[in-house]
Design a protein around this nucleic acid. Structure first.
Lengths: 201, 201
DNA sequence: AACTTTTTGGAACAATCAGTTAAAATATTG
DNA sequence: CAATATTTTAACTGATTGTTCCAAAAAGTT
């Protein structure tokens, strides 16, 4: 019976794993992978070095866990957006969710997937690549969904799915930089409103 | 007579200042501010530490000089684009120039202004801010030009200049991330072609 | 040849980096 | 209480960070 409620032997933890990972995610989000030091991580996470390594592994491993949490948390809107009934609604929903997260003043400015490690030194090359993969995976999910929309007839048969996907992704990424620039939610919303009006659909 | 051709006393330099700054720019471009070490800079620049400091100042100062060179070099297309006769041609020209630079396989992938320091630790906060200012300055120049286009009548009086500027900027920034993802020039061109077709003009 | 001026090479700097280790502390189990 | 298991504490790696300093080297000037 090794359940989550199982009584554990040994000295009990003085930190909350969930809280700690959330804090790590937000610090990486704000400062990027290379800009975040282990010392600062232990502080915001409320975890000492040794426990951090025992629980989350090394810095890269911790970052990947934080990234996964980012996908399940702040950017979970993507999962729901993909379930919308039509292509237009899917795109609308992605834009809405994105603007909501990026425009929330309680969040770090920008998007973890682009701020985390867009360009790095050789030591962080694998993290940079992981983020490329992460972004491309998002694009792939959208592309699959739009492809289905075409089959279902709610996108014209003439629509170039790859182009439309890349176009939406471009705006998506661009919003992240707008947010990093300090633009407000209202300003970002005006961009997505304009984009939706123009959409070749 | 203190001209540039003036004979200088002292031991002559063994490095070329222009070459060195170009090399620094490209390394920052590829690795970002925090991802670039002084050790690696001296190697690619062909300058020893002491001479680097004497000539370019500290790391931040060197980065700012590299950024200025980036503006005068790879992204000089902006200056020319703003001189185009109509708003549409201006935007077309920006997109074309951007795709050419970002899609050039001999260049580092992505855009220095977004890769340099989108998110950083506190130590690099001033560099991050300098890049925000740099990007916003670019937006401001475009906005001024589009405002003029409206006055000159080649944009409808109903056009919201701020919105149009931000929309073009968003795509501009987004292209940088596409490039960082490894997308090809052809793929980026298809994005800008689509955007131009959709432009509310 | 003696003196100035500038650059070079390399050592030295203190600070910080990610990561490890061993002992002390705190719990459960028998 | 004794044995076991886990976490905390804190010191300690060894490497790397950005920056400074200094004597030697290489040129021009007198």
């Amino acid at each position: 019976m090794s359940e989550t409620t199982a009584v554990k032997m040994g000295r009990p933890r003085e930190f909350d794993e969930d809280f700690a990972l959330e804090a790590a995610m937000r610090l990486f989000w704000e400062r990027g992978y290379e800009g975040t030091s282990l010392h600062d991580l232990t502080e915001v996470m409320g975890v000492n070095r040794a426990s951090l390594y025992a629980t989350f592994g090394d810095k890269e491993s911790l970052f990947l866990k934080a990234l996964a949490r980012y996908g399940d948390g702040p950017t979970s809107y993507l999962k729901f957006a993909l379930k919308e009934p039509t292509a237009v609604q899917v795109i609308e929903s992605i834009f809405r969710g994105s603007v909501n997260v990026l425009g929330d003043p309680t969040n770090p400015r920008g998007c973890l997937s682009t701020q985390g490690a867009l360009a790095t030194g050789p030591a962080a090359a694998s993290v940079k690549q992981a983020l490329i993969d992460w972004r491309k995976a998002g694009e792939a999910q959208l592309q699959e969904r739009l492809k289905r929309a075409k089959v279902e007839g709610d996108l014209p048969a003439t629509t170039n799915i790859a182009d439309l996907t890349r176009f939406v992704s471009t705006i998506w990424y661009g919003l992240g930089v707008l947010a990093a620039n300090g633009d407000s939610k209202v300003e970002m919303k005006r961009v997505t409103d304009l984009a939706l009006k123009m959409l070749p659909i």
